[in-house]
Design a protein around this nucleic acid. Structure first.
Lengths: 187, 187
DNA sequence: CCGTTGGATGACACTCAGTGACATGACGAT
DNA sequence: ATCGTCATGTCACTGAGTGTCATCCAACGG
């Protein structure tokens, strides 16, 4: 057919975001996304395992950054401190994607199916963080709960960050969420 | 057609569990479940919003029991203590369903789709617990994090309870999970 | 005894997500 | 020029989920 075009993955993501934003997730078919990207439905599924995944392919990068951050944390820090300190590189990257994150959040907020996918991505993240902690020598139980708590802190902070308009507020919101967690488990 | 039979909901659940256990979730079609229950695919979807939901209709009862337990907690307890104390009625009910829970857990463990649904049910639970705390006068932020943490404690304890063979161990596992959480956030 | 009404179910056609198998066309290497 | 490979297209198919209408059955009032 016509000549090969680059960045099919990116074109599909862009087309999907546009259409979801215009008509909503449910009212958009995979065939329509593919058509706007100049491709076919079959090719869409070569790049994304399912329709939802087009909104979640950034999760890999988030996980990589977080694990790098954890690896760079001081050796004598407590498990939970390691986990939250590891969010520094993540905060940096998010700063530049605030608007995209807001659009994406609006789409996800309107769809239970997408919320399910978001939660399992978070859970996978927690599993990866947990393994990273165990490799640092943290006990299995502490690693599990620190990872879960750390992801909860991240999730709460992220939700607030998306709701407000300052792209640079991420680090501050993480600190606040962590402080809140500490204060209520201290008693 | 043939005579009307009672408890269509229960028959569909039973047929589904049997088939999922025999052949696995993916290899079972809704039409097959309905056929074993003496019904049609269309009727299945009148009782369950989708195929997964047949494994999660117990979540409503869990939520109800937990909220009752929270309502019965001492007025001067800390938010997290209120939440975990509220699990007493839940522990009681689970004691009688240990075997069912084990079969169900095996099915869910083998299927990412089902894990997604499980997580969102947990999240909905957290939302309900959070609202219950707010109604008790807990601040919005403390309620959010106490509910999230409480559900995490529940989730961890539940996973351990399913893995082992003592149906009565639930309360003890909750206490242990809570103690672990406290010890790692105290530092 | 009969007609009516309402709730539960069946029948059927339809859309759309997702997959498997195979074809095609561009491109680089030899 | 030919070969192989990679990205994509084509097509047929399964199965989830829905809208719509038909049918059956029990309860109820006259």
């Amino acid at each position: 057919m016509s000549r090969w075009k680059p960045d099919a993955h990116g074109r599909l993501m862009g087309a999907a975001i546009e259409l979801f934003d215009e008509r909503g997730y449910d009212a958009t078919t995979v065939a329509e996304i593919a058509e706007r990207a100049g491709l076919t439905k079959r090719t869409f599924f070569r790049y994304f395992s399912d329709k939802r995944e087009v909104l979640f392919s950034g999760a890999d990068q988030l996980q990589r950054l977080w694990l790098e951050g954890i690896a760079g944390a001081p050796a004598d820090a407590t498990p939970l401190a390691v986990v939250t300190a590891g969010l520094d590189p993540v905060a940096e990257m998010f700063t530049e994607r605030h608007e995209f994150a807001q659009i994406r959040a609006r789409i996800i907020e309107a769809n239970p199916e997408l919320q399910e996918r978001e939660l399992i991505k978070l859970q996978n993240l927690a599993g990866a963080v947990e393994r990273a902690l165990v490799e640092r020598g943290v006990s299995a139980n502490a690693a599990l709960l620190a990872a879960q708590s750390g992801v909860t802190v991240f999730h709460v902070a992220f939700a607030h960050w998306v709701e407000q308009d300052d792209p640079t507020a991420f680090r501050r919101l993480i600190a606040k969420s962590l402080a809140d967690l500490r204060s209520l488990t201290a008693a």
